[in-house]
Design a protein around this nucleic acid. Sequence first.
DNA 1: CAATCTGTAACGTTTATCATTACAGTATAG
DNA 2: CTATACTGTAATGATAAACGTTACAGATTG
Lengths: 137, 137
Amino acid sequence: MNSDFTLAIHSLTLLALQPDRMSTSEYIAESAGVHPVRIRKVLSLLKKHGFIKSKEGIGGGFIFALDLSEVTLWDIYKITSEGALQPKCPESNDQCIVGANMQRVLFSIFLGAEDHLGEYLKDYTIKEIVDLINKKQ
Amino acid sequence: MNSDFTLAIHSLTLLALQPDRMSTSEYIAESAGVHPVRIRKVLSLLKKHGFIKSKEGIGGGFIFALDLSEVTLWDIYKITSEGALQPKCPESNDQCIVGANMQRVLFSIFLGAEDHLGEYLKDYTIKEIVDLINKKQ
DNA sequence: CAATCTGTAACGTTTATCATTACAGTATAG
DNA sequence: CTATACTGTAATGATAAACGTTACAGATTG
């Protein structure tokens, strides 16, 4: 799966640990090991969906907007990676019954697969990620 | 997910429809819309795991080795795409507690996710794919 | 031994991912 | 009101992954 998902979780976890002050994209980028612009791109998605707030200018940055246990990995998956499970289908030969129908068949199966994955990912909230990060160190 | 999965399913479905004779990589490639060498690469994996047999020389090609309902999408996923669900983690900063532990935490969660996906994919056999392909045309 | 197939390595091309630069817009401090 | 420190986002460039293609050795058949 793409790394936007990881970056989103990483960022939210950091924000969860700094509930009282704004964190800058540079601070988050340093922890995540990527460029600040990537963090800002990913976080602008999270902002659009209301999970975080941001503020420009001096003393600005990003801050969590909801309760930690209101945000699940499934929420983040949907925002950053929806459709990632879907297997890539080369354009196949429509003259052949298999070529003509394979994409449709696999597509519907993997729609179901993604729903199924959702049921699993809904059980993990950012609160639980924070707990897992703190454990064992 | 990668297209090897799709090509494997596509190939097996074609072989399922030709149970009595060998199919060449060129024939399969034409249906799938890719180069025959890619088909041979993917099918060599399937052969290694005993799902198909192959024969070189004139009249050679590939043929199904098992019963259609013995092969599930989960079998094929494991062979072609295991780990594909795992979100990519940039190398993050070990000085930060989040950076140091995120990869481990996500890795274990997505091991579980893949098992969960497996339970879903086990319900689809090649026989069922063949039925779905034939339906609605 | 000529023809037809698989098996696989090697190389080149295309596409996707990611980093970086650049700059406009906004808030704060003095 | 101006310098500073942020976000927001587009555009460009670099790197890596996916894929196509060529090439050729090995196997089987007639």
